[in-house]
Computed example of a mutant assay.
Amino acid sequence: MKPYLPKLLKPSFYSHSLPLFVALLLIISACSSGKKALQRGDYYDATLKAVERLRQSPNNKKARHTLGEAYYRAVEENLRTTRTLDTKINPLNWEKIAQSYGRINEMGNEIRRSPAALRIVKNPTSYLGEEIKAKEKAAEARYNEGVKAMALNTREDAKKAYYHFVKANEWVNGYKDVATQIPIAKDAATLKVLVQPIQVPNSFGLGRDFVQNQVMEYLNTNRRMNEFVTFYLSWQTPNYCCADQLLLMSFDEFTVGQVFQKEKTTTAIDSVRRSVRLDDGSSKTITDAVKADYTHHEQYVVSNGRLDVRIIDVKTNRILMQDKYPGEFVWRNEWGTYQGDKRALDEEQEKAIKVRPIAPPPPQDLFVELFRPIYDQLTGNMRRFYSRY
């Protein structure tokens, strides 16, 4: 007797059941009573989860018990933070105080939006005035730190100042003149790099401008680039005098449109059967020997080069980075010709003789194609180099 083997479920079962299973997990997670958060001492999170559970199930015993236990402990815990933090020694402690008052007010607002929760916590406390004052103090502390950092007059301190001013504006939107200070700090923190045009012969000017613009677009818009580095094109800003670095690019090896041709002739021989009609009216199959000289033509247009890239410190004239990026592009065209009986050609040869020779692309296009592999190397290295700034 063969052992019983259960039938495997069809793949369609899994494909239809998986989204349902995930949805159930999300529902179960959303319906948490907050008991686990209470057990690990996260009273704030336990309160919010219990209130959310009571909105969906007003008589849920676990949620009612959790809310009663967690809310008052959460309030006391956050009030303890506001009383114990020293804002004289560290004015930035106003941020933690504002966060604590904010949590108390958030819990109270959530409870007021739930009738079931209000039956457990009948009079949730409000510290709205205290939260507003703490936010003002937090913004003031950040603003003052930003002013101090800017006074140190270094790029790194300007970067710190920028973050301080941004944070001040987050605590109180439009605090003092922070909207003016943010761009000033950002400009002082930003490394300015002046980019010289890629040095190529004048006949490739259009192609050079195209690839140059592609590089500049990447450097100034790619999200993975350092936000505190800005690149300027020298011919677009000829009077720009405040550059910190120069980015120089030139080809020390450069060949575009070097043409190579290759031909190979072979003799194709085959036999072809055909039917002929005899004088007496009958037909007969005969075999003809056919022959053709087939020539396969190949034309290659090779373009290659090596881009030399240097980054120079303007003040010291020191070379900060130098590297070379090779690139190559080969344009190919293949076709066939023959002399003799076409029937001797094979399938590939018949396709080849239908192809006609075409003129290579213009040098501008070859230059752009040559630059593609160089572009990938260049932009990747620029991103890594400027990440340190």
Rank of each mutant, 00 (worst) to 15 (best):
K2T: 08
P3R: 15
Y4A: 05
L9C: 08
L9F: 06
Y14L: 12
F21E: 10
F21Q: 14
F21P: 00
L24T: 09
L25N: 12
A30R: 15
C31N: 15
S33H: 07
K36P: 07
A46T: 06
T47W: 04
E52I: 05
L54W: 04
N59A: 10
R64Q: 14
Y72A: 11
V75W: 02
E76K: 13
N78I: 00
L79P: 04
T81K: 15
T87R: 02
K96Y: 04
E106W: 00
G108K: 07
E110A: 11
R113F: 00
S114P: 06
A117C: 04
L118G: 09
V121G: 03
Y127R: 03
E131Y: 13
I132V: 09
A134C: 11
A134P: 15
K137V: 01
R142L: 07
R142T: 06
G146W: 00
V147Q: 09
M150I: 07
A151H: 03
T154S: 13
R155Y: 01
A158K: 13
K159S: 10
A161H: 05
H164C: 12
A168S: 14
W171L: 11
V172P: 02
G174V: 05
Y175I: 07
K176F: 00
K176S: 08
D177H: 03
I184Y: 10
D187A: 12
L191H: 10
V193A: 05
L194A: 08
P197E: 08
Q199I: 13
P201N: 01
L206G: 12
V211I: 14
V211C: 08
N220A: 07
R224H: 13
E227C: 06
F228E: 15
V229A: 15
Y232K: 13
Q236E: 12
A243E: 13
F251D: 11
V259G: 05
Q261L: 10
E263I: 07
K264P: 00
T265R: 15
I269H: 14
I269W: 02
S271E: 15
S271D: 10
S275N: 10
D280I: 02
S283F: 04
D288W: 02
A289H: 15
V290Y: 00
D293A: 11
D293F: 04
D293V: 10
Y294L: 03
T295C: 06
Y300F: 15
G305P: 06
V309F: 11
V309M: 14
R310W: 01
R310M: 09
I312D: 06
N317M: 07
R318H: 10
R318D: 05
M321V: 00
Q322H: 14
Q322E: 12
K324C: 09
G327L: 06
E328H: 09
F329M: 01
W331C: 05
R332I: 00
E334Q: 11
T337N: 09
T337L: 07
Q339H: 12
V355W: 00
Q364H: 03
Q364N: 14
D365G: 05
L366Y: 00
V368D: 07
E369L: 09
E369M: 08
L370V: 00
F371R: 08
I374C: 10
Q377P: 06
T379I: 06
R384C: 02
